[in-house]
Design a protein around this nucleic acid. Structure first.
Length: 470
RNA sequence: CGCGGGGUAGAGCAAUUGGCAGCUCGCAAGGCUCAUAACCUUGAGGUUGUGGGUUCGAAUCCCACCCCCGCAACCA
């Protein structure tokens, strides 16, 4: 049962700061990583930052900071956010890391040697305002709608990657589930894309300096996407192939088509699964920098704690569809589920046991039978149904509260101390099992509960989730 | 235009192969006092987007329409 498990998240592009939308993916992947470690699997969890490209070059120039420093600061911003959320990555890779660069050079050379890169001209409409190519469809009356200028037709030389050579193979592997695309609707979408055919990809850039130089053509740098995708291999060579890439829907095409094509071209095996989560909306609106509709996860963590934010994201948002978040909803989960539900149950039972049994359940007292379906939880986690797993676990919490009430535990303490001890032990056991299953989700709190309910002498617990002053 | 997802109680969501339309929050009433003014019970609240069709029976299958969201080949 000691298997290898290699999980990755998308690496974040450093043209912005981490926001709550990024957090869901990291936390979801963290649940899987912790879950697998707890099972004894040799686990590798990779996350990091994507740092090359013209856009970053521009950003750094505008902010007047040397580009290396700009990148380092941005990267540590992401790292800090994930640290604050207790994301237990084994490595935080940066695409500017030496070992990554070396692997990119090796891989792209191998792909060229295998005959899948060819030189050709790319002709397109270049908007000076965008400093990028734009498509005909973007134009309004022949002008770039944003800059009100006619684009120039520019020709540039690129090394093209023959994606088209692999589309059939990839399609077959996806259809046969040799490469699993989860969820099903994303798989369908990718297959539809493959059906339409896929043009070759310009894998290098002649005009971008901030990137990895093409080993045999120093005038060019490796296209950032190619550079970025390779992180999964460079950051976990010994663990390759990955068991799962956890990513967002915007980049599914790159992970389900281009990345497999690159791997095939380099004679490497494909990841086993690409798991695509939904996007979050914030107050029912798209999370977007331009409208300022963003939340810094650090703010929520500072106010509510890492576990509360983790719980909220995982409970509120189903993995495979879009979900809406807001501070209001977070607070509702915090009060309703965490404070009133779980936290309060721990408080009331520990208080009763301390007060009436001096904190010790006497030897020989057996708990009333506890029947909780633990297998269900593991299955749901394996199927990325984190919100359902948590809902099921919270049924146990409700059961615990119900048992206390229906037995009138506070009365039993006075009328039938043996039964009091027995029912108390039952509730403590429920909490122990609950905490055990909560470990991947809310590791700090789960450990606290385990310590509290398995202590030799139980003492009244401090509130696990104290009321937040508004 | 195309591809994909969706429209179910005030809000957020669920309903294996068609078979009494459920859950959470909120709201209302009652109970309890161990607990973080927490907990437990009960109740109200729905013509399942619209219009047709198939069927003994449709949220579910078929047709048409309306509305929302995502994607749409170098936007990292």
């Amino acid at each position: 049962m000691n298997q290898k498990y290699y999980i990755t998240t998308a690496i974040d592009y450093i043209n912005g700061k981490p926001h709550i939308g990024h957090s869901y993916e990291k936390v979801a992947a963290d649940v899987l990583a912790r879950f697998n470690r707890a099972r004894g699997n040799e686990t590798r969890f990779l996350t990091g930052t994507d740092e090359h490209g013209a856009k970053i070059e521009k950003f750094a120039t505008e902010s007047g900071v040397p580009i290396e420093q700009f990148a380092a600061e941005a990267a540590s911003g992401f790292k800090l956010a994930w640290d604050n959320l207790n994301v237990s990555y084994d490595r935080f890779i940066r695409t500017t890391d030496e070992d990554h660069i070396k692997v990119v050079e090796e891989l792209i050379t191998k792909i060229k040697d295998n005959g899948y890169l060819y030189e050709a001209d790319y002709e397109g409409l270049y908007c000076v305002g965008h400093e990028a190519f734009i498509t005909e469809k973007d134009l309004v009356d022949g002008l770039c709608p944003e800059h009100k200028k006619a684009p120039d037709t520019i020709k540039e030389k690129n090394w093209f990657f023959k994606v088209s050579a692999f589309t059939d193979t990839i399609k077959n592997k996806i259809e046969s589930n040799e490469l699993v695309i989860y969820p099903e609707h994303s798989k369908k979408e990718i297959l539809a894309m493959l059906e339409e055919g896929f043009t070759d990809l310009a894998a290098t850039r002649p005009n971008v300096k901030w990137g990895i130089p093409v080993p045999w053509d120093k005038e060019q740098t490796v296209y950032v996407w190619v550079d970025a995708l390779i992180n999964y291999y460079s950051g976990g060579k010994d663990f390759w192939p990955a068991d799962v890439h956890v990513i967002g829907p915007d980049i599914a095409k790159f992970h389900c088509i281009i990345w497999p094509a690159l791997l095939l071209a380099a004679d490497l095996s494909l990841p086993k699964c690409v798991a695509i989560h939904g996007f979050l909306t914030l107050n029912h609106e798209k999370i977007s920098k331009s409208t300022g509709n963003i939340i810094d996860p650090n703010d929520w963590v500072a106010k509510y704690g890492a576990d509360a934010v983790r719980y909220f994201l995982l409970r509120e948002v189903p993995f495979d569809t879009h979900g809406d978040v807001s501070e209001e909803k977070l607070l509702a989960r915090y009060d309703g589920d965490l404070a009133n539900g779980l936290g309060n149950l721990v408080s009331r039972v520990t208080t009763l046991v301390e007060k009436n049994l001096d904190g010790v359940i006497p030897d020989g007292i057996e708990p009333t039978a506890v029947a909780l379906n633990e297998q269900d939880i593991d299955k749901l986690i394996e199927e990325y149904k984190f919100h359902e797993a948590l809902a099921k676990i919270w049924e146990w919490v409700a059961e615990g509260n119900k048992i206390v009430d229906e037995n009138k535990l506070w009365e039993l303490a006075k009328t039938d101390l043996d039964k009091f001890a027995s029912v108390s032990k039952e509730v403590l056991l429920i909490l122990e099992i609950t905490a055990k299953h909560l470990q991947p989700f809310i590791p700090e709190t789960a450990q606290k509960i385990l310590d509290i309910v398995t202590a030799k002498k139980i003492t009244k617990a401090e509130p696990l989730f104290p009321r937040i002053e508004a």
